[in-house]
Design a protein around this nucleic acid. Structure first.
Lengths: 247, 247
DNA sequence: CGCACCATTGATATGGATCAATAACTGTGG
DNA sequence: CCACAGTTATTGATCCATATCAATGGTGCG
């Protein structure tokens, strides 16, 4: 059985609250994989019957078309999983690729082991349902945003989401950092890198300092105009009067 | 316990292969709901802790923004479910609305019952994982398509998908019918109704007859140019030499 | 130090949204 | 069975936002 520090996986949504025996069973049949920066971990259209839990590093999942364009699906940090949904799809090959964007270590768990663990541990099943349902939820929001919002709004919304996430993890109240390259973020938001850059330039004129990858807000409410009912729940301010989102 | 014909639910992916006792438990705690055409079944931003299985009729799920725009997420037929993913999300209110687009009957199952049934029946858990993972898969494809394809290609791809689905259900080999209004389909594809109409006009010049909601292909390969590796598996022709998709 | 890569800024072209008008349906009631 | 209203679909004309192209500036790494 693999021997790793418990805290490298135990905060993950995947493992949360599941039986000790399930953890043992999974660790017994999983391997730890190491990848250099920019290594392709999963190749689109190939079989890859494994779920990965990121222990350290960063990963992007994406699709590429025959004409060479790529669409980033998700940008991932430690404790997050990928191929979590794919191993339950009807397809026999993966619809996405995954690539490390930093030196990365993952816990690689065979599909079969997950299936078996699920049938014995309904908490694990529930965790996976929640994980995948939330992915689907974000994906729906993304489709909606692309249809109905302009690039500036999408960028603003993205920054606000990251800011709230940062606050939730106990970060400082007015500054935070983009965790990925701007071109990757732009791609994920469905805009050209140039457009992303221009959107950031507009935000600067609205009291948001941007130096490289560091964002500094002039006030903790600087981004409030980009809020929406979905984010409102994650915001401490939502009860305050000056929050415009109410329903 | 509700008394309905078994075939009105037993072909659904939800119920497939699950224990008799689970079926009984679910039917015991579910209700049958009837809706006129254009009834709002679920309202965005409100609580709705139920999963619906469509027994007859048609339903659309969608999001609407404050400015009144709506984005269709899915268009649904009998045997399909909605609110299937929502009941596993972290949100306490629904991120989507659901509305009947025809007179509709659904089996309405409380969230709590589903949760309990899952913990006893791992096949049901597996079914739900598959259902939601596939939704997520389509949603990823949609995001990708919006980024990388022109409206004509998206329309062509849509028609091809529907055609293959039609064939799989044993339909005639060269004609089939759009199951929804053109404006709804256009919305789901993320194009204006006018653009959808113009795309269909282009397709006419490529040997695809379109009369109202009926599509007639001049040859069963008329739509092959819109194929991609994801659809290839569902296509009987994929093994034939004249199929260009080979990945 | 120099070479890649990444980001910004400027100039241009274009595809599809939007606006507007008409035409084809669908269903309803006389 | 037809007339009418309401909805849905088509077709045409216009305009603007953003992708694309192009050039420069910045940054990190070997």
């Amino acid at each position: 059985m693999i021997n790793i520090r418990q805290n490298s996986y135990s905060n993950s949504q995947l493992m949360r609250g599941i039986q000790e025996s399930s953890v043992a069973y999974i660790l017994n049949h999983a391997t730890i994989e190491q990848f250099d920066k920019n290594t392709i971990i999963v190749q689109q259209s190939e079989k890859h019957p494994f779920l990965h839990l990121i222990l350290s590093g960063k990963v992007k999942t994406y699709r590429h078309s025959t004409e060479g364009k790529e669409t980033i699906i998700r940008l991932l940090k430690p404790q997050e999983t990928f191929m979590d949904a794919v191993i339950f799809m009807n397809t026999d090959t993966s619809p996405i690729s995954a690539q490390s964007i930093e030196p990365t270590k993952t816990l690689k768990i065979p599909q079969k082991i997950i299936h078996e663990a699920i049938s014995k541990d309904s908490i694990l099943a529930h965790n996976l349902l929640q994980i995948i349902a939330n992915h689907y939820g974000s994906s729906m929001l993304q489709v909606d945003a692309i249809h109905t919002q302009k690039p500036l709004d999408r960028v603003g919304f993205y920054l606000l989401s990251k800011y709230l996430e940062h606050i939730k993890l106990g970060g400082s109240s007015k500054s935070f950092s983009l965790q990925y390259t701007k071109q990757d973020i732009a791609n994920q938001l469905g805009v050209a890198p140039e457009t992303f850059s221009r959107s950031l330039a507009k935000l600067k004129q609205m009291g948001i300092e941007i130096q490289g990858t560091e964002i500094k807000l002039s006030s903790s409410e600087s981004l409030c105009q980009f809020c929406d009912p979905t984010l409102t729940k994650k915001c401490i301010k939502s009860s305050k009067d000056d929050c415009k989102i109410k329903e």
